[in-house]
Simulated assay, not measured.
Amino acid sequence: MRVVILGGGYAGLICALRLARRTRGQVAVTLVSASPWFVERIRLHERAAGSEPVKRELAEMVAGTGITLKIGRVTRIDPRGEILLGDERLPFEQLVVALGSHVDLDGVPGVREHAFTLDAASAASLSERLPAIAARRGRVVVVGGGLTGIEGASELAEAHPGLQVTLLYAGELGGNYSEAGREHLRRSLNRLGVTLEQGRVKRLQAGSVELEERSVPFDACLWAGGFVAPELLRQSGLSVNARGQALVDAYLRALGHENIHVIGDAAAPVAPPSPMLMGCKTALPMGVYVAERLSRLSRGQDSEPFDYLDTAFCISLGRRDGLVQPYRQDGSPTGWVFRGRLGAWLKEAICLGVSWTLAAERKGLHFFAWRKTGRKLSPPAAQERRLAA
């Protein structure tokens, strides 16, 4: 079986490592990445604040596993069994799309022209600008009240005490936390000197965020207003949602394409567990599941549907503070949280655990696991019929 995996991020890399080790040469595994470097996206807010990233080459991370690594940008996917990689045509029997997501630069006018993001290159550019802005007590406006925005605002404020940091959000800040979690979040942001403002952004202009009834000036703007999947998925004829994510069935197969699996941020399940948040904590289970499924398929064996239970929400609030919000079985937050230095330690342990997990997978140590709901799902064919109706 020839398996091509597109994307060298969390989902694609762990899928390639697990599949190669499970099949031990019985499956030809090719990993395609636009960059030769593995990017730790869960640490990009630290990079924006000025920390030096630990750069790891994908070639080193897959060395000795039998994986064929190709560096290049995919320009076309033919679902019938071929991708176009530059001038090279790469055939496949099974395709795994793990192309991740990127910050939505076009949903609000002016973002592309006037904002930084926590994508790797932009985060590095912002880190170079911040010392001069902080020296003159300038203002950075962080737009977005989700995980990315909160971590970004906290990290910048702690790393650059002279900086005026404003967190601008539209909905409820910490709406999926318990009361204890929301209280700690606001207290921590206040301790760091982060100003909170609520409002819906109409557009960005040079030096200001334009809201419905006022404008907020800035020396730099960090946009964390949402993520979208690559346009390549739509262009290739896959069924996608409003964010460009491919719709997938209970086996994480693109609807209508049994030879294409989609995992990580690029995937949107149409059956439970649905919806799934974008992020490392969902990318790793999806990558491992598809690797195990393809391994079984290569031996002519069936697989159970993908099952996943979200158990906690982890957030760093600078280097010395954090918040871990556990969830109940029904998805509601518990009334208790891990916070402060303990929360920061747990969050850092989780980040380090991701690196250790990938290193272990390369050596054939398959200890990564996740909690499951245990629910029984209907066959994917029935789900697709309901969706079409």
Rank of each mutant, 00 (worst) to 15 (best):
I5K: 09
S355P: 00
G66N: 09
I260E: 04
A349D: 12
R137M: 02
Y169K: 08
P333I: 00
G152F: 04
S295N: 14
Y251G: 06
Y177D: 06
H366P: 01
E155V: 07
T311C: 03
V288G: 06
A134E: 10
R56H: 12
I315P: 01
I42C: 02
G138N: 06
N259T: 08
G244F: 02
G340I: 03
C351M: 12
S378T: 10
V201I: 14
R89D: 00
K70Y: 01
G237K: 04
Y327G: 05
Q198R: 15
G86I: 12
R80N: 11
I5R: 07
A98R: 05
Y10W: 13
S295T: 08
V143C: 13
R24G: 09
G340V: 02
E52T: 15
L147H: 06
E292Y: 00
L233E: 07
P109K: 12
D219S: 11
A254I: 03
P275D: 10
G7I: 09
E213K: 12
L19V: 08
W370V: 03
F38A: 05
E231Q: 14
G244P: 05
K372Y: 00
A63C: 03
H114Y: 15
K372A: 07
R319S: 15
R89W: 08
S178H: 05
Y177A: 05
V209K: 04
L346M: 15
D78C: 03
E212F: 07
G318K: 03
S188E: 12
P326Y: 05
G331K: 11
R136K: 15
L232E: 04
A267F: 03
E158F: 09
C314M: 15
R18K: 14
G149H: 04
K202N: 13
L85Q: 05
E113K: 10
W356H: 13
H184Q: 13
F368G: 01
V216M: 12
T68C: 07
F92Y: 15
I77H: 04
R24N: 14
L252T: 04
S274K: 11
V32A: 02
I5D: 03
G138V: 02
A224W: 01
A34W: 03
S355R: 14
N241I: 02
R89L: 06
I315Q: 11
H102P: 00
L156N: 04
R299M: 12
E88H: 10
P326E: 05
L189P: 03
R328G: 15
D321T: 02
W223E: 05
Y308G: 09
E384H: 11
D219Q: 07
V216K: 01
R296D: 13
E348S: 12
A49P: 09
D219F: 10
S122Y: 08
P79N: 02
V324N: 08
S236N: 06
